[in-house]
């Protein structure tokens, strides 16, 4: 992952929210809707279906960012195309966030012998 200078403040913001922010509720219906929106808005093209990232988009799940940082990243960013509220509403973005938050941790390295190099 290449992190540009402009991204560091977002990471900092994320760290603050991690410490202080409250957990965001993840209603299962919202998660299902969010997953559909994640696919509709093509988030998976850069970030892949489980948010693991790819050659042109960083890993976003399991997300550590609070919604505000996540939103900032989508609306104003050095890396990805900026999605304005005109094409992606705050409400839909929130549902996408709920889905990203719901993606579980993958197995640990100890559980994946294929990743022994």
């Amino acid at each position: 992952m290449i992190i540009t200078k402009g991204f560091y403040p977002i990471l900092g913001l994320a760290a603050i929210f991690l410490c202080c922010g409250k957990a965001i509720g993840q209603d299962s219906e919202d998660v299902v809707t969010g997953q559909a929106l994640y696919e509709t808005y093509q988030c998976w093209q850069c970030h892949s279906y489980q948010g693991q990232g790819g050659a042109h988009g960083p890993r976003i799940a399991p997300t550590l960012y609070p919604f505000e940082a996540f939103s900032q990243f989508v609306r104003r960013t050095n890396l990805m195309p900026a999605y304005s509220p005109n094409v992606l509403s705050d409400q839909d973005l929130r549902l996408i966030y709920d889905y990203v938050r719901s993606i579980p941790e993958p197995p640990s390295l100890e559980e994946i012998p294929e990743l022994t190099f």
Binding site: S48, G51, Q52, R59, A61, P106, P107, L115
Partner: peptide, 13 residues
């Protein structure tokens, strides 16, 4: 790098 490879490990496709 090894750690990153485990994300999406069980994903389909």
């Amino acid at each position: 790098d090894r750690d990153w490879a485990r994300y999406g490990w069980n994903a389909s496709p």
